[in-house]
Design a protein around this nucleic acid. Structure first.
Length: 597
RNA sequence: GACCCCGUAGCUCAGUUGGAUAGAGCAUCUGCCUUCUAAGCAGAUGGUCACUGGUUCGAAUCCAGUCGGGGUCGCCA
């Protein structure tokens, strides 16, 4: 965990203070810092309550003694005050102005490369259905986490697993062959993934009709659901697929191709990217040998019927099957093999993060324990970014009840809302239609992405359609707006000269300036924490705090109209630093920012 | 039933290595465009931090229990 440089410096100074004043040792980590509450004077507050034993004095004398020591010995501490057990420190202006100069000159949200390569897996769609709201949270999270890790200095490999085989896609294939009349995306103009999804639904309809017919003919429903001819046909097709039947394989490739075209169109619009794709049709055979090796070493055990199991009861979990009695593998087997393959493929991989919903918590717990038992040292570097479900006001999304929110439709809706708002404000009269379209696309997607990313990933969240297209308040467009406003300011200021930290005159920072500077100063630490915790919401919320503070500053304090050229230049430098940091922070969330809006 | 997660303002969410009077946005109400973009700013209203007990100088935060919501417990993926 990283503490910011100012804090690290103060921690050491406080430690020295205890040493010299009270001849007492205090552990660095025990020094608790917090931002000073606005109603008191100060920037940083230290709570001395935990150290009364070491000092042998009451809270106030302890705090006062430390405060006096810091003012004397640590140049960044300008003065202090003590209220109850709280030592409020005022940090020297030169520290803050020096920081602004630095933030205006370089990207404070880009950490130097640390040489660690990490992998993030996200998306993992099935090829029988279009992408929906759940995929959006997954993709935005995965994409953002990848960028945050990159900004934190990692080299990131983004991967996607595509579930392209199995009974589900065979169902679509059967229905298309029977009912499709040769329909293609070209012939009907339907997006490829939507077309295949349509036949998946058609299959279900036909299946239900057949079951009803069989039941009407006197068959028990349970039996009918196993024997409906169209289901048998799909199962037969899966066998043919596994036997490499050329005709079935050709149809499979053709229909999956349509799906990929559709997915790619959606991914492009979402602005989500991958470095490498894994297809389940290639990886589903992996893991079997690894399980057999584990069996030989006595890590797993075989039951009388021949099936192979792992016993995780000692870890508080359960027994879990790894190979069926007929020797075929299950999902877990595949995941074991895939993980092993990835660490072979990318030697020295420092971390592998799976972005997968929390309904699979148990699966990943089990998977990680198994890999640890198999003795892979990297097993401790596996993470499950377990995110909560997205609920609708009406409850859970259910495909059977037709309440699934389609990704393409949703994007279309937020972009439409951005357009409606943009046209109404009519600030863009000199924009071409093309420029407008690009801007509304950017704003709409910002609204959607920010809405899904500002919530702690671990928590289930409510998707309120009305709130998600909101462009005011705690939203992506609000942040974009602040950025555009600063850019406009900076364009007007061109030629007014630059500012350097040695140029500061004898002035006091205004409270509005100080607030902005402090939030900006914390941002790199927040980014680092977000990388550590795999949590974009921390960065999203802090970025909002920053631009909110900037807006208050902007509204209350003149910049271009400031008469003192030094102060004006300083405010421009601060504005530029906020703009740069905001742009980078939003980039880390996968959100673009406009020069005007 | 067992295990896991969650419960903070009317609604959606921050805040949890234990610290000062628990914060935002939306909604409602009041001001502010002759001044750098009003997608903004300033302010008001709104709280038994689910409940009970415990730990301690101090608990929304830690522990136990109760209630409520969700998830997982397949030789499915």
């Amino acid at each position: 965990m990283m503490t910011d440089p100012l804090q690290a410096r103060l921690e050491l100074a406080v430690q020295r203070a205890f040493q010299e004043l009270f001849d007492a040792e205090i552990p660095l980590k025990q020094v608790s810092f917090q931002a000073t509450r606005p109603e008191f004077e100060g920037d940083v507050t230290i709570n001395v309550f935990p150290f009364l034993k070491q000092s042998g004095k009451g809270p106030e004398p302890t705090a006062t003694a430390i405060g006096e020591y810091l003012v004397q010995e640590e140049p960044v501490v300008a003065r202090f005050n003590v209220i109850k057990g709280f030592l409020n420190l005022v940090i020297a202006e030169s520290y803050w102005t020096g920081f602004v100069a630095e933030a205006a000159a370089r990207d404070i949200l880009q950490f130097p490369s640390n040489g660690r390569r990490v992998m993030v897996e996200y998306s993992s769609p099935n090829t029988n259905k279009p992408l929906h709201l759940g995929h959006l949270r997954n993709n935005f999270l995965g994409h953002s986490v990848s960028r945050i890790l990159k900004a934190a200095g990692h080299e990131v490999v983004r991967v996607q697993v595509i579930n392209d085989r199995g009974i589900h896609i065979c169902k679509s294939m059967v229905a298309w062959r029977k009912l499709g009349k040769g329909e293609t995306p070209q012939s009907s103009g339907l997006k490829g993934d939507k077309l295949v999804g349509k036949y998946y639904v058609e299959f279900d309809k036909a299946f239900k009709a057949e079951v009803d017919t069989l039941v009407a003919g006197g068959m028990v429903r349970e039996a009918a659901e196993k024997e409906a001819p169209i289901l048998l046909e799909a199962q037969e097709m899966l066998r043919q697929w596994e036997a490499n039947d050329p005709e079935v394989r050709a149809l499979w490739e053709r229909m999956n191709g349509w799906v990929y075209d559709g997915f790619n169109a959606t991914y492009t619009r979402m602005g989500v990217e991958f470095d490498k794709l894994y297809y389940e049709s290639n990886t589903y055979v992996l893991g079997k040998q690894d399980v057999l090796d584990g069996l030989e070493k006595g890590i797993f055990f075989r039951k009388e019927d021949g099936s192979v199991w792992v016993d995780n009861t000692a870890e508080g979990l359960d027994e879990k099957v790894l190979l069926r009695r007929d020797g075929t593998s299950v999902y877990m087997t595949q995941d074991i093999g895939t993980a092993i393959q990835r660490f072979k493929e990318f030697p020295g991989l420092a971390q592998l993060t799976y972005v997968v919903g929390n309904e699979q918590d148990y699966h990943f717990k089990t998977l990680f324990i198994i890999l640890r038992k198999l003795g892979f040292p990297w097993a401790q570097d596996l993470h499950h970014l377990s995110y909560g479900m997205v609920d609708l006001p009406s409850g859970k999304m259910k495909s059977r009840e037709g309440t699934v929110v389609d990704a393409d439709d949703l994007i279309e809706e937020v972009v439409g809302e951005a357009r409606a708002m943009g046209e109404q404000l009519s600030k863009l009269d000199d924009f071409s239609e093309q420029e407008k379209a690009a801007l509304f696309e950017m704003i709409g997607l910002a609204a959607l992405k920010y809405y899904l990313l500002k919530v702690d990933p671990k928590k289930r969240m409510l998707f309120d359609p009305a709130a998600s297209i909101d462009l005011q308040g705690h939203t992506g467009p609000f942040i974009q707006y602040t950025y555009a406003r600063i850019r406009s300011l900076l364009r007007k200021a061109e030629g007014m000269g630059t500012w350097a930290s040695d140029q500061r005159g004898a002035w006091d920072l205004l409270p509005e300036e100080r607030t902005v500077i402090k939030l900006l100063h914390q941002l790199p630490t927040v980014l680092h924490e977000a990388a550590h915790k795999l949590d974009p919401s921390a960065l999203a919320n802090h970025t909002y705090e920053l631009v909110k503070a900037y807006n208050s500053f902007y509204q209350a304090i003149p910049v271009l109209k400031e008469e003192s050229s030094d102060r004006r230049a300083f405010r421009l430098a601060l504005s530029a630093a906020v703009a740069d940091a905001t742009k980078k922070a939003m980039w880390c969330l996968g959100i673009n920012v406009p020069e005007r809006m």
